[in-house]
Design a protein around this nucleic acid. Structure first.
Length: 760
DNA sequence: GTTGGTATCTGTGGA
DNA sequence: AGATACCAAC
């Protein structure tokens, strides 16, 4: 065993060696955070701590896997006995062992977001509520944040502030939906992603002697990665495990407040502040890793400068010793398509000039929907690429369908799976029959599965239902004896799913059949895989094990089909923790990055800025920032100003300061009037002229509801303009109007208040 | 009960 | 633009 401690700088080594008692490591980007975590664990093992006494919680499977691999390199085998994994996977593993104690079967189903939305949709429909008001997505996030704050349905119904918010949003019955959803999940033997955390907390809380005590003793050392992204519930669980009278409080959390980008799903930097407070009296040690080993100086300077614009932060400044390096390039495009082309051009040029491989390069965007254009041009240029974050393999319809059969075989109470396949492929059990069964189940408070034989209907329907029950029972009994692959193959054939796809000869149909075959292959290799890495504490070759495993996978965990050397396309969110020699951050426009959803609050904007900080600190040597003057959204052309974040990058770090690389004049001429952007990024000057451009005497405002996209209109102050688009409905209609000849010619105007005269 | 066409909505990020 | 929901016709 080499002495790995030599590879660390002073602060890193201190963070590794401070094994006992509470430790907070504030780790800037590229500061060797993963190295500290892994060496810390390796060091613990070397000092005689048993691997299974160590609990290391991460946010992604990838981070967990990497950590285990690196520990193994240092200490050899034994690394796979460390309890390292995501919050969700570790807790789900323990829940399976202890599920009965909170009234769940050990083979409980895990609902993904789609399942959750579908269940909510059904409840909303049954309650006869308008789903445009009670949008499943909104309700889901409301329920999610309730769970993340340890608010049960019953508590929710007592919280006046929550009820008040719901009333204000015209959704007063949200608490009832939450209650029903909760009941239904329980009845179905199902947990959603939040439940994996929430029920785990419940398990510990309700069984202090049998369970909590056991895991407190077991996990003598607890580590948490990306602590800034934990929510209240996650921290409550961690605290429960380590915060008790005779605890050694061997808790180490690693995080960076500047990289907190998940407030939208309940993460709170407050946890870092609370942590310091909670462990103040137990000899907490705080280390700051500020030395950046990833990026050159221009990039680090840009990052430091940008983050200064935030309101609240733990003061720290990252330092680079890599030399000044290349300046940051800013590319302006007239259209989203041109942006794609210019990124591909620049990328090729960089590859040639600096001998970069495809895998050294990433294109990062704010929203997944932006990937399409870049894919188009990369394909055209014959550059292999890999897109992360789209529809994952396991979310495809045909895959989910077969999995639904498997889910039913394991847990017939799983109502969502039942609804999904009871009539797919078609077997003559239509909506009305399903509704009858559902109503019956609701009235009796039992799973739908138990009501199947009771459904009223014609003889043919009865027969169909009996056939379906038989099919599922067959699958279930096979699952008792056969391995997962055999059950899956049998399900694919016996359900008619495989036959249905075989008859579809369209290219999409053939693709779907291939996906099904791939799924079967995947299941096969899953149950045959007895390689050493698969045989760690998490090995469970049963069908149940398989199902729980895939429920927690993301497309990060999917196989790379590009042969390994591909350009990476992903959202900035999923790029956290990664690094590339060259990074393109694209779509740097107001309303996109920062996102329009975040712009009404300071906190929202700060989070977007941290996201931008994360984006630029992914780059080692080359950083290219691009924006487009116009882009299509929902089939409509939109115009946006350059992102405010571009101005927050110091001029000295930009290539050809003040100047911009713009598109060719031909392309520029094809775009809309650009209204003279002098200097690099001219921003809105608030002092606009108060004088009238239109004659107030002859001005006659038209009723605002008549304003439509495409019209020419007159505004008293701004003069004549063209309505580019309209967003929102009724009182919230907002027009984007282009006024020729004024500063920042593109304006968004609330029609409710606007005085506009229609000219044609 | 099923099929196919039209209207409507979508509008951040992810385990 | 693309997915989904809904409705009328088979």
């Amino acid at each position: 065993m080499s002495d790995f401690l030599q590879e660390l700088n002073t602060v890193q080594r201190q963070s590794v060696l401070a094994t006992d008692g509470p430790v907070l490591v504030v780790a800037g980007p590229g500061s060797g955070k993963t190295r500290v975590l892994t060496y810390r664990i390796a060091h613990l093992i070397r000092e005689g701590v048993a691997p299974w006494e160590i609990l290391a919680l991460t946010f992604t499977n990838k981070a967990a896997r990497e950590m285990k691999e690196r520990i193994e390199k240092v200490v050899g085998s034994g690394a796979n006995q460390v309890w390292a994994g995501t919050f969700h996977s570790i807790f789900s593993r323990i829940l399976r062992m202890e599920a009965e104690k909170i009234g769940y079967p050990s083979h409980f189903t895990i609902y993904d977001t789609e399942d959750t939305k579908s269940v909510l949709g059904a409840i909303i429909k049954e309650m006869n509520l308008d789903k445009t008001v009670y949008s499943p997505n909104v309700i889901r996030s409301r329920i999610s944040s309730a769970k993340s704050n340890l608010i049960t349905p019953r508590l929710y119904a007592e919280k006046e502030d929550l009820l008040q918010q719901d009333r204000a949003a015209k959704r007063p019955l949200t608490f009832q939906i939450y209650q029903q959803y909760s009941d239904r999940c329980k009845r179905s033997g199902a947990m959603d992603f939040d439940d994996l955390l929430y029920r785990f907390y419940e398990l510990l809380h309700r069984n202090p002697d049998q369970v909590l005590e056991k895991y407190r003793k077991k996990f003598r050392y607890v580590l948490v990665d990306e602590f800034q992204d934990t929510n209240h519930l996650q921290y409550a669980i961690v605290r429960k495990l380590v915060q008790y009278p005779e605890s050694p409080r061997n808790i180490c959390v690693v995080g960076d407040d500047a990289q907190s980008i998940y407030a939208f799903r309940g993460a709170t930097i407050q946890n870092i502040l609370d942590f310091e407070q909670d462990f103040k009296n137990h000899g907490i040690q705080v280390f700051k890793l500020e030395q950046n080993y990833r990026s050159t100086e221009h990039i680090v300077e840009a990052a430091n400068s940008v983050i200064q614009f935030n309101q609240r932060q733990i003061q720290k400044k990252i330092r680079s010793e890599k030399g000044s390096g290349h300046k940051i390039q800013v590319v302006k495009a007239m259209t989203d398509s041109e942006e794609g082309k210019r990124v591909a051009d620049t990328l090729l040029e960089q590859k040639n000039r600096f001998h970069l491989s495809n895998r050294d390069i990433a294109i990062l965007y704010r929203t997944n929907a932006q990937s399409r254009i870049f894919e188009e041009y990369l394909r055209r240029f014959n550059i292999p690429y890999r897109v992360f974050g789209g529809l994952s393999f396991y979310q495809r319809k045909e895959v989910k369908d077969l999995i639904a059969y498997l889910r039913l075989a394991i847990n017939p109470r799983d109502e969502e799976a039942l609804r999904r396949v009871i009539n797919f492929p078609k077997r003559g059990i239509g909506d009305s029959t399903v509704e009858k069964i559902s109503t019956l189940a609701g009235a009796r408070q039992v799973p739908m599965w138990e009501c199947l034989p009771l459904a009223e209907g014609g003889a043919r329907t009865q027969q169909s239902i009996a056939g379906f029950i038989r099919l599922i029972q067959e699958l279930a009994s096979r699952a008792q004896t056969a391995n997962a692959y055999d059950v899956a193959l049998y399900a694919a054939e016996k359900s008619g799913l495989a036959d249905l796809l075989r008859t579809d000869t369209t290219p999409e149909g053939i693709g779907r059949l291939e996906n099904l075959a791939n799924l079967l292959d995947g299941i096969k290799s899953y149950c045959e895989d007895d390689s050493e890495e698969a045989i760690d504490f998490s090995a469970d070759k049963s069908l149940t094990g398989y199902l729980q495993n895939i429920a927690l996978l993301t497309d990060f965990d999917e196989e790379d089909k590009t042969g390994g050397d591909a350009v990476t396309l992903m959202s900035v969110h999923s790029a956290k923790g990664l690094e590339f020699k060259s990074v393109f951050v694209v779509g740097l426009e107001e309303n996109l990055f920062p996102s329009i959803m975040s712009m009404d609050t300071m906190e929202g904007l700060d989070e977007e800025r941290r996201l931008f900080y994360v984006a630029i600190t992914r780059a080692e040597q080359f950083l290219t920032l691009t924006y487009s003057v116009s882009r299509y959204k929902f089939g409509q052309m939109r115009y946006n100003e350059p992102s405010r974040f571009l101005e927050e990058v110091p001029r000295e770090s930009l290539e050809s300061a003040g100047g911009l690389k713009t598109g060719s004049s031909k392309e520029a001429a094809a775009g809309p009037p650009t209204a003279t952007v002098s200097g690099a990024f001219q921003r809105r000057t608030n002092a606009h002229n108060a004088s009238f451009k239109a004659d107030p005497a002859s001005f006659q405002a038209s009723p605002s509801e008549q304003i439509q996209a495409g019209m020419r209109v007159l505004h008293l102050k701004f003069g004549e303009g063209k309505v580019l688009s309209i967003d929102g409905a009724k009182d919230n209609r907002v027009a984007t109007i282009f006024f020729q000849g004024i500063d920042n010619p593109q304006r968004r105007i609330m029609l409710k208040f606007a005085k506009l005269q229609i000219l044609e």
